[in-house]
Design a protein around this nucleic acid. Structure first.
Lengths: 110, 110
DNA sequence: ACTATATACTTTGTAATACTATGTATTTTG
DNA sequence: CAAAATACATAGTATTACAAAGTATATAGT
């Protein structure tokens, strides 16, 4: 039933929500690495993020200094890049939340 | 205050929300023309939509057959292109609303 | 009469971002 | 020993908001 349009729409909707989602998850201060975030988001939200989406997204957040990262060698396996939210990131995600809530209120009022 | 990032983010967020907003406004069956929609949305939501954004958006919605349009000559002034939502549009906006609500619930739960 | 503003729609070029596909490398599982 | 899972990266494509400019009519101000 017009799955095409709704599917495409969901992809467009992600353009605003993924950075918000990631920062929201990091908000409580816990560390996550990229691959982990993909699974965490899938588990919590049923939203699939392609690797080719998440890794560049994390690089942008890093470049904007909303998150910090550090490489952590594993005793076995591939090194992981762990991310933590910054003060600026916390401030930004709070602004986002305020905007999101007002947008949601507006949409519900229509 | 990192206004840059939040401002850019809001622009990205619109990529998912504008079509949803427009269809939501048309949902009750009332006719609107483009210029009118820009003002209506600004009044109801404080969201500014550039003309270069709305007119191509309406063309996409038309092409996808989510809305129908008809030209209406004015006794004085420039002809207006009036839009009405289609059955497919109604169905689609309901799907969008369902998705939006679940997304909102998810975000609030994080 | 002239100018600016408002109305109403269109088009062109740019920037941002999700996605597919592909690549690299290690470890675990069948 | 092959396949799948883990973990990160990059190149190319499609979509879409936006700024800017254009066309055309009507009105308000000076």
């Amino acid at each position: 039933m017009n799955e095409d349009f709704t599917t495409k729409w969901i992809s467009q909707l992600k353009k605003g929500t993924l950075s918000f989602l990631v920062l929201s998850i990091l908000k409580d201060g816990k560390e996550y690495y990229g691959y982990d975030l993909i699974n965490e988001i899938k588990k919590r939200t049923q939203i699939d993020i392609a690797e080719g989406t998440l890794y560049p997204l994390m690089n942008r957040l890093k470049k904007e200094e909303l998150v910090a990262s550090k490489w952590v060698e594993q005793e076995s396996g591939i090194p992981r890049k762990y991310y933590t939210i910054s003060t600026l990131g916390l401030h930004t995600v709070n602004e986002m939340k305020t905007y999101w809530d007002s947008l949601n209120t507006t949409i519900n009022a229509i």
